[in-house]
Design a binder for these strands. Structure first.
Length: 824
RNA sequence: GCCGAAGUGGCGGAACUGGCAGACGCAUACGAUUCAAAAUCGUACGGGAAACCAUGGGGGUUCGAGUCCCCCCUUCGGCACCA
């Protein structure tokens, strides 16, 4: 025997054999077979795999291999999220075309993935930057367009000066670009949006359907969508017939309104002040606001600042004249951009009113506190009884909220409204390396969708890469100038490309029929494979990718293209891989290269360590010593199996079943149960692996202490061990399986089932406690009668001594577990 | 500020329904093997001389609490002037 597992020889050997024999080929010819779609988030082809990928894909591979062995028809695909900025930046910096850069990165990463032995069917690989994919991305865009869910509008949008492009709301983190952390500025541009807000309510409601998602992610989505219930109220502008509508969640406080505030950027502000003495000051204020960064502007700590603009509005409830302000703390894009100021019951309004000496009028009092004694030092935002509120005085404010809204609705001055924090999804990007938006502009016909038979709108290859803030496409004459599909006249193409999150919002559907060149997907295949049973990826996509994908799915359902409305039944968000307590990153210099680890210890060792070191949802601390440990364990398995093979004809006796044989069989079946449950029920790969380790330790003891062993028991144990290891460490398991004399792949085996009868123990240890402290132990037949067990414990000599002279107050017996004697 | 998760040996972690806290692994020490080393195998390994004390801290429920309840602290993640 070889005394060491030669991974350098075995791993490539088996990878080749699996590839040649098509072990991981997906077939969907027999759709009566129960399917299991196991999906991991596809990577951006940066050029190198990092440990986060290894973790993500190792987890997925265990699930895929396990489900396959359990008899499911498993779809386990892989592909590339291949559009995006780094490729274009490389083009600018090194003069290499994004396509080439991306292609060679894909090639390298695919090789790295292959070396890890993941069970992908590479024939189904999907690459989003290829025309056979982005053609359908464009086609899907047009489905949105035709349904009125894609539109172009002029808006103040988030602009990242470093990436020289606009960003979606979801891509702005604390006022900075999600990619490069550069501070985001506002820019006025005409941009394409998808109407995700039309789906806000359904995206919110259907969170309830996501039983298999972590609560954390569901809560994050819920907060992001941010539904709030309230009312719209119309205030007439004094001296005109025009009204200003505000959104409020507290219509019960309307009698407490003493001022009104508009967001400075509202066009209405300019209109109201034009030609008035206030115009200059207002313009100055607006300009000043524009110089303040988004972060400072929206921070809760920023001091409130505002300006009276010379106009008043009329409170529709009591006809009062209310001064109109603009202020930094009112946001342009939430609600209507207007806020009714109720300083007594809103802290922000309170701060503002205090600073500018505005009236503070209490309209809600905590029960039993008379009006005249109230001296507010801060806003009162809790419940109470209405005062100073005309006909609503004396009502509980909760009731008044409904009654006032109803009253306004009857008089046409307001109505109940729901408002969402979610904004429409800005999908235009002023960059080259993305899917072109398939729209042309014709002088005669206006905005025209590119017809299906003219798709794809190819990305031209002969473009100049300069970070100008305009898409390189805009300077590519041959691309821009085209003919109008409607009238045949000269027309110009849209030069913005799509946000790459569009590409990744439907790739999981493309995987079901990756070669379909007539449709975005083959309906029958999607019907079979979707939805995804298990999705695995990092929690950083909790909002962006996962929300967008849910949105896409719902739109496709509404268009009658698919029959399900949630794409991912179960979601596992894996933790980060840390080194020295921090996330691995080049800038911190604490990275560990998967390539080096694989060269040094092999793929099986790398996978085993990463699965063993922590449960999947938690962060994982990298440890080189831990990797050594995993390597040692695999060699320990290797030697154990070889010792068995070498001794096959020597010391195995057939005749008797000894206690040790019996115990070994019990351990074998216990391990099957434990590993199966840990994978299936809880994804606790770490405890599954430790159970296998205990199994190995037990088998070593069995050998060491029993020169004569039952051959059937030993054979079952060894075969089981190798089979249980197969999903975790596929190469060594395959090698050992063949060394054991089998010719078919271990990965084609059925997952073992345990014999419940084998788990039954004849004798169990009973702990005897006195006042909850362990004082004695005794062996008893399993299932022994409770009363008899308690009596037996009380009769024990050691127990008698401890109890002597004390009063036994109570005795608790738990069959097969313990006896607790309470004494005084 | 609001929402969420987590705090267990020197370290990573285990304890599934309230029932022997620290499984499994790492590190460390000692021993065996060896001319020697590596590798391997074995033993020990929370603190304390002991009674006992120990799961972030303090209360509580219970015969019994890492696990359930209340209060507090710390760390990490998300949101953050959202009207």
């Amino acid at each position: 025997m070889k005394d060491r597992y030669d991974f350098a020889e075995c791993e490539p050997k088996w990878q080749k054999i699996w590839e040649d024999t098509g072990l991981h080929k997906v077939t969907d010819s027999d759709q009566t077979r129960e399917k299991y779609y196991c999906l991991e988030m596809f990577p951006y082809p940066s050029g190198n795999l990092h440990m986060g990928h290894v973790r993500n894909y190792s987890i997925g591979d265990v699930v895929a291999r396990f489900k396959t062995m359990q008899g499911f028809n498993v779809l386990h695909p892989m592909g590339w999220d291949a559009f995006g900025l780094p490729a274009e930046n490389a083009a600018i910096k090194h003069g290499i075309h994004p396509y080439q850069w991306t292609e060679s990165n894909i090639e390298n990463m695919r090789m790295q993935l292959s070396r890890l032995g993941f069970s992908y069917d590479w024939d189904g690989q999907v690459t989003t930057c290829k025309p056979d994919y982005y053609k359908w991305t464009q086609w899907l865009f047009l489905q949105f367009y035709k349904a009125g869910l894609a539109y172009k509008k002029h808006a103040a949008v988030n602009w990242c000066p470093d990436c020289v492009t606009v960003l979606a709301n979801e891509q702005v983190v604390n006022g900075a670009c999600e990619r490069c952390s550069t501070e985001v500025v506002k820019k006025d541009l005409a941009q394409w949006f998808l109407k995700i807000t039309d789906y806000a309510q359904r995206l919110l409601d259907d969170i309830d359907k996501l039983q298999g998602w972590p609560d954390k992610v569901k809560i994050m989505q819920e907060n992001w969508i941010g539904r709030s219930d309230g009312a719209e109220v119309n205030f007439r502008i004094d001296g005109t017939e025009e009204t200003i509508t505000v959104f409020t969640t507290r219509p019960d406080t309307i009698y407490g309104v003493t001022f009104m505030v508009l967001a400075p950027e509202l066009p209405l502000v300019e209109k109201l002040t034009r030609g008035t003495p206030y115009e200059g000051a207002v313009q100055d204020f607006i300009r000043k606001m524009q110089t303040v960064s988004e972060i400072d502007r929206t921070s809760a700590d920023t001091e409130k600042e505002g300006l009276f603009i010379g106009q008043h509005v009329i409170n529709p409830m009591n006809g009062e004249k209310i001064p109109l302000f603009i202020a930094n703390y009112v946001l342009m894009d939430y609600g209507t951009g207007c806020v009714m100021g109720v300083p007594a019951h809103d802290q922000r309004d309170f701060d503002f009113a205090t600073k500018y000496g505005l009236q503070i009028r209490v309209v809600i009092l905590p029960d039993g506190v008379p009006d005249k004694y109230v001296q507010l030092t801060q806003a009162y935002d809790a419940e109470g009884v209405m005062v100073n509120s005309g006909p609503f005085d004396g009502q509980n404010n909760e009731d008044a909220m409904k009654n006032i809204t109803k009253y306004m609705e009857e008089r046409g001055t307001g109505k109940p409204t729901v408002n969402f924090r979610l904004r429409d999804w800005l999908i235009s990007r002023q960059r080259y390396w993305g899917a072109p938006i398939p729209v042309v502009y014709c002088d005669k016909c206006g905005e025209v969708a590119v017809p299906d038979d003219q798709l794809p709108v190819y990305l031209p290859t002969d473009v100049e890469f300069k970070p100008t803030g305009q898409s390189p496409l805009a300077e590519c004459e041959s691309f821009v100038n085209t003919t109008c599909p409607e009238c045949g006249g000269p027309a110009k193409r849209e030069t913005d490309t799509m946000d790459t999150f569009i590409c990744s919002s439907w790739y999981y559907i493309r995987y079901c029929s990756p070669h379909d060149d007539r449709n975005a997907f083959t309906k029958s295949k999607v019907d079979y494979w979707m939805p995804v049973e298990q999705y695995i990826g990092g929690v950083e996509h909790a909002i962006l990718h996962l929300l967008y994908s849910r949105f896409f799915t719902k739109v496709l359902k509404d268009q009658g293209l698919i029959d399900f409305d949630e794409p991912f039944t179960n979601l596992l968000t894996q933790g980060m891989v840390l080194k020295d307590g921090a996330k691995m990153s080049k800038s911190k210099g604490n990275t560990v290269s998967p390539e080096e680890t694989v060269s040094q210890y092999g793929a099986d060792t790398a996978r085993l360590f990463i699965l063993f070191a922590a449960p999947p949802e938690r962060d994982l601390e990298w440890s080189d010593a831990g990797v050594e440990g995993a390597y040692r364990f695999l060699n320990r398995v290797w030697r154990l199996v070889y010792a068995y093979i070498d001794g096959l004809n020597e010391s195995s006796g057939e005749e008797e079943i000894t206690a040790a044989d019996h115990e070994t069989r019990r351990l074998t079946h216990y391990t099957i149960k434990k590993v199966t449950d840990d994978i299936n029920l809880r994804f606790n790969f770490n405890t599954a692996i430790s159970a296998i380790m205990e199994f190995v330790n037990g088998l070593y003891q069995y050998r060491d202490k029993n020169p004569v062993r039952n051959s059937a028991v030993e054979a079952e144990a060894v075969n089981t061990l190798v089979t249980l290891l197969a999903p975790f460490t596929p190469h060594i398991a395959e090698e050992l399986w063949h060394q054991l004399g089998y010719t078919e792949s271990v990965h084609k085996r059925s997952w073992p089932t345990y014999d419940p009868a084998a788990l039954v123990q004849d004798e169990v240890e009973i702990v005897v406690q006195i006042n909850g402290k362990v004082r004695d132990r005794m062996m008893m037949p399993a299932g022994f009668d409770k009363e008899a067990m308690v009596q037996y414990a009380l009769d024990r000599e050691g127990v008698q001594n401890l109890v002597a002279g004390k009063q036994v107050v109570k005795v608790v017996g738990v069959p097969n577990k313990l006896v607790n004697i309470v004494i005084k």
